[in-house]
């Protein structure tokens, strides 16, 4: 990874309070185009809150978020989506009674040309065709894109949610525990998909509690503890023990942005 490269997405000193609970207390985050960044941390470390801040769901109380080096403050998830930032929610956020194509295009439906289009008449053939193409690109085979997603298997549903994000994201995709509910085979497929998406130059930020999974798919790992980033590793150069140590704080000294933090990712601008 080129060290001089401007991060695609960066957060500095983000603070977020819920009443008297401080979920984030000066958290930093860095992610580059084309990489898979795993965001790990113990329960309550602030991972979901950080992702919500970065994806426009929450506004930070303090701190700065930069996209492509430009300070930005999303007014909501839609605003983030307009900037090419998509989220795959943990609950997938699909409409179970609608088919895969309709879910893929939910809120961004394609309409017919001309007068019918102005009446809001949907262009289902095109949406279905594009949906098949989108799933094909992810290596997902859906027998029937016209079947309601509720009839699909867990993995297929997951693919629909991922395909939805992939189809519209051109910068960043956040995935909150995308494999938590999946079996071995489907988990492997989703991880494959994650890799493929990153190879297209999109940054994928993955929250996960599964350390072997993190090491196998991520390029880098950022560790949150008590609302702060406490370490940043290159996945290839680290071990599960090290990750767990950083998460729990037992290896505080060495892991704390110390010798394991790779040069390319922990730049001077991180400040500590």
């Amino acid at each position: 990874m080129a060290s001089a490269r401007e991060p695609l997405l960066a957060a500095h000193g983000v603070v977020k309070r819920f009443g008297h609970v401080q979920a984030l207390s000066g958290a930093d985050f860095t992610a580059h185009a084309g990489e898979v960044v795993a965001l790990i941390g113990d329960n309550g470390a602030g991972k979901s809150t950080l992702v919500n801040v970065l994806s426009g769901v929450l506004t930070p109380d303090e701190g700065e978020v930069r996209l492509d080096g430009v300070p930005i403050r999303f007014t909501g998830p839609m605003d983030a989506q307009r900037h090419g930032v998509e989220t795959v929610y943990q609950d997938l956020s699909l409409a179970p009674d609608l088919d895969a194509a309709a879910n893929l295009y939910l809120g961004r439906e394609l309409v017919r040309g001309g007068f019918l289009g102005r009446l809001g008449v949907l262009d289902r053939p095109t949406m279905r065709r594009e949906a098949v193409a989108a799933f094909g690109e992810l290596g997902v085979e859906l027998k029937d894109v016209t079947a309601p997603v509720t009839t699909l298997s867990g993995g297929q549903r997951q693919s629909v949610a991922v395909a939805r994000a992939v189809a519209f994201a051109n910068k960043v995709i956040f995935m909150d525990e995308p494999t938590a509910a999946l079996g071995v085979v489907q988990r492997a497929r989703v991880l494959e998909t994650v890799r493929r998406v990153a190879d297209r130059g999109i940054c994928v930020v993955l929250i996960s509690h599964n350390m072997p999974e993190v090491l196998s798919v991520a390029d880098r790992v950022e560790v949150l503890r008590l609302g702060r980033r406490v370490a940043s590793f290159t996945a290839a150069d680290t071990t599960i023990e090290e990750l767990v140590g950083a998460m729990t704080g037992s290896l505080d000294e060495p892991a704390h942005n110390g010798n394991h933090a790779p040069v390319g990712t922990t730049e001077a601008e991180d400040g500590r």
């Binding site: 998830p77 839609m78 009674d97 309709a102 809120g107 008449v121 289902r124």
Partner: peptide, 24 residues
């Protein structure tokens, strides 16, 4: 059956949170 309005109507009954997150 054939319009965006109808599709959103079905989607809202199916999962209002997803619909809201989709910006509808």
């Amino acid at each position: 059956g054939a319009t965006r309005f109808g599709s959103h109507t079905l989607a809202i009954g199916s999962n209002p949170t997803a619909v809201r997150r989709a910006g509808i």
